[in-house]
């Protein structure tokens, strides 16, 4: 396996094992972090999450669409410093278009079937982050960047 495929596999494996991501948005001159349930497309080019339109993060996203998402497998033990992997995704967020909603929703609910009611609510937005860059950190201090053209 070449290095890029290996790194993509590492990211995919991590995403498979994690349900939640920390979303960093920005609004009113203030960064804001929140937990979101996420799913990623198989090609890793998009990350999907849902939020109600009344939330602070949604308001932030409407004014600044650039976001960062952190997904990691820490266990809150000391071994994390040797074995934990953290992936930061940078990208641009937008609501999924009607034409793609069916496929993204299917993907999302496959991972989070218990959120069906929540996502189906008219007040809830399904958002996609088009990933521009992944930062993969392992072994405490090793950092690799995966740029998506």
């Amino acid at each position: 396996m070449d290095e890029i495929s290996g790194l993509k596999q590492t990211i995919a494996d991590l995403f498979l094992g994690q349900n939640l991501a920390v979303l960093s948005s920005y609004g009113n001159k203030q960064p804001y972090a929140s937990l979101v349930a996420f799913a990623a497309t198989e090609d890793l080019k998009h990350i999907i999450f849902a939020t109600t339109r009344s939330t602070r993060k949604y308001a932030n996203l409407t004014s600044e669409s650039q976001v960062a998402l952190l997904i990691d497998n820490r266990s809150n033990e000391e071994k994390d410093f040797s074995y934990a992997i953290a992936v930061t995704a940078l990208g641009m967020t937008e609501e999924v278009r009607d034409s793609e909603r069916t496929s993204f929703l299917k993907l999302y609910l496959k991972k989070h079937p218990h959120l069906k009611e929540f996502v189906s609510s008219p007040s809830c937005a399904l958002l996609k982050v088009t990933v521009q860059k992944y930062y993969v950190v392992n072994r405490f201090q090793n950092v690799q960047e995966l740029h998506i053209q």
Binding site: D2, E3, I4, S5, L7, K8, D43, K45, Y135, R139, F140, Q141, N142, V143, Q144, E145, L146, H147, I148, Q149
Partner: peptide, 14 residues
């Protein structure tokens, strides 16, 4: 690497 849409850049190496 054959992955055309992706480009790897080592950012920080231990």
């Amino acid at each position: 690497d054959p992955e055309q849409d992706f480009r790897l850049q080592n950012r920080q190496i231990t």
